[in-house]
Nucleic acid binder design. Structure first.
Lengths: 332, 332
DNA sequence: CGTTAGCACTCGGTACAATCGAGTGCCAGC
DNA sequence: GCTGGCACTCGATTGTACCGAGTGCTAACG
């Protein structure tokens, strides 16, 4: 599409603009990308690049800044996986060496790690509930009319739901229901709970049904998601309203989750501007990657920054972290 | 300390400044607080108030803005609990009527509610772990060398820890350990786990010890805390760096928790500026209140805003929500 | 003696002009 | 096709003037 010189110029403009946040003029380009031509030549090329929609001028007689299309070209040029700088590689290694224990805690820490590496906001989505199989179910009474259904899943996630009863329900009955539930559900994925085996006792059956209903995945229960470093968005934009809006979106976790899922479904790993189709984040870019636990796609991680984000670095960080995270969880 | 007229003038300056964020001049004060005196008189009084440290002038020949001491006087004047406007009262009622199920989920939603009511960031701290007694403990194997300790507490909280073993550990042994743990721990508070009863089987005892160790409350495991509406801080300050810093602090949940705890310990319900002793939040004010479940102090809620926050409204919101939250959790 | 009208003064904010300079587009010549 | 040269554009910066909100002080007033 673009001849090599135009591509080089575009690359120079993008990477310069990522660094400085200032419109880039022809002079800077020749200085930066040492192709042996004069500013005038570069100007001509840049005029073409603007006509084709890769660059814009904020106003006449300023330098150019990349459009979303320009960024897109830039990231498409990046073929090599890109390597993280040594300090950060070490940081990742240290993190996973020290990482211990609690799955949720660990995922939350991972989002912080990724945010520290990139200096943008980071998202880690935990394994989806539906997929994991049930390892154990237990009914625990908390009061005469209230109990907790606790289900332990094979991936280490613990689901719990509160149950309230009309009449008092003793421990024996809870025990009976627990036994029935375990007989039925252990080994099944949470997504497909199937039917209940009758126990013979009507009250116990009722209890079992209630528990299973509570366990069913509700649409409004999003996957576990951990957002780290959202404070870094404060510096990413200079319009306060943009900051406010982006932060607000990061608080709505289900939006974030579905955004990542959508992107992965569509095979996108980098979404620039409106490529993800979600208007309120049109000033952002989003880099995502799935991670795999024991060969199975388990969850995803992502980085959210301004469209003028440091793509090579952020992409490298996402790649490394997703890969290491998967490995770590597989071994665990 | 201050005669009635000075107090009235100070009140007028504070509430006007809260509204407008603009320095308040003598003219506005006479207009606002209709005490029948001239601007000149008010100027004299304001000069005194400035000398005494209640007000400052950002520069000569501007109006005055309150100092932290001024705000402090203002909130100390507020004796009546203050009532929420009807729309918001209704919002609170509706929320607690609809609130259902999951404790954690519910607390997270409560933080959102409080943030919506006040337009500031809100914090909800869940019941402390140590206090609750254990209702049930279970060891669930996730793999040959890995298991989960799951403890259900009387307040509905579920604690879980991952255990890793050197050698393979079968379900029978896990079952034996589970039984031993339940014999020992049910009814005990998580804070004081006490000693283990020997089972006779060395390997099982080892397992029991490991599980109890994992369950012990670690210092770095903060209470559950839910921060809502932190995006609202973006508009609260005009210095980007302040926003950035405050948001960063809100992400460090243990700081937030200990801040609230400190304040309550010292009997403070409103901290203005540096009153809480935490420098990085010196441009903020913090309103906190404990909530009680069945007569026991269970947790706390709070609102974080700029020092020029709407104290009467925020204080009313915190009071109402903490009271309703306690009631709701007691009934549940 | 407290209050007030009057007044000179201060100083941030706005409006306007001048200037600067980074950058452009275009053209003629190499 | 590339480049040096050149006129031009326009945001940013600087300087000046001015306005107005607000002050402190003083002298007069009830």
């Amino acid at each position: 599409m673009l001849d090599e010189r135009k591509a080089a110029i575009l690359r120079a403009v993008v990477s310069e603009y990522i660094d400085t946040a200032q419109p880039v003029g022809s002079g800077h380009v020749v200085h930066e990308a040492g192709l042996g031509v004069s500013p005038a030549t570069v100007r001509n090329e840049m005029a073409v690049l603007e006509r084709e929609g890769y660059l814009v001028q904020p106003h006449t007689s300023a330098g150019r800044i990349p459009t979303d299309k320009g960024y897109r070209f830039f990231v498409d040029q990046i073929t090599a996986p890109g390597t993280l700088d040594p300090g950060k590689r070490q940081q990742v290694r240290d993190f996973f060496r020290a990482a211990h224990g609690e799955l949720e805690r660990m995922l939350a820490d991972t989002s912080r790690l990724l945010s520290n590496l990139t200096n943008y906001a980071a998202v880690v989505v935990g394994p989806p509930h539906e997929a994991a199989t049930i390892r154990s179910v237990q009914l625990v009474g908390l009061g005469p009319r209230i109990a907790l259904v606790v289900a332990v899943l094979s991936n280490g996630v613990v689901e719990k739901r509160t149950l309230e009863f009309k009449e008092e329900t003793g421990d024996e009955r809870l025990g009976a229901a627990t036994a029935a539930l375990n007989r039925n559900l252990v080994g099944r994925p949470l997504g497909t709970l199937g039917t209940v085996l009758e126990t013979g006792d009507a009250a116990t059956d009722e209890l079992v049904r209630a528990a299973m209903n509570a366990l069913r995945v509700h649409d409004d229960e999003p996957d576990h998601v951990f957002v780290g470093g959202s404070s870094r968005m404060a510096r990413a934009f200079d319009a306060v309203d943009t900051v406010r809006e982006v932060l607000g979106i990061l608080e709505e976790q289900y939006v974030v989750v579905s955004l990542l899922r959508d992107m992965l479904d569509r095979g996108l790993s980098v979404a620039i501007g409106v490529e993800h189709g979600y208007q309120p984040l049109s000033e952002c870019a989003l880099i995502v990657a799935p991670y795999e636990v024991e060969g199975e796609r388990a969850g995803s991680i992502g980085v959210l920054g301004p469209t003028r984000m440091n793509y090579p670095e952020a992409m490298a960080a996402v790649a490394v972290v997703s890969q290491r995270l998967g490995k770590h969880l597989s071994e665990g």
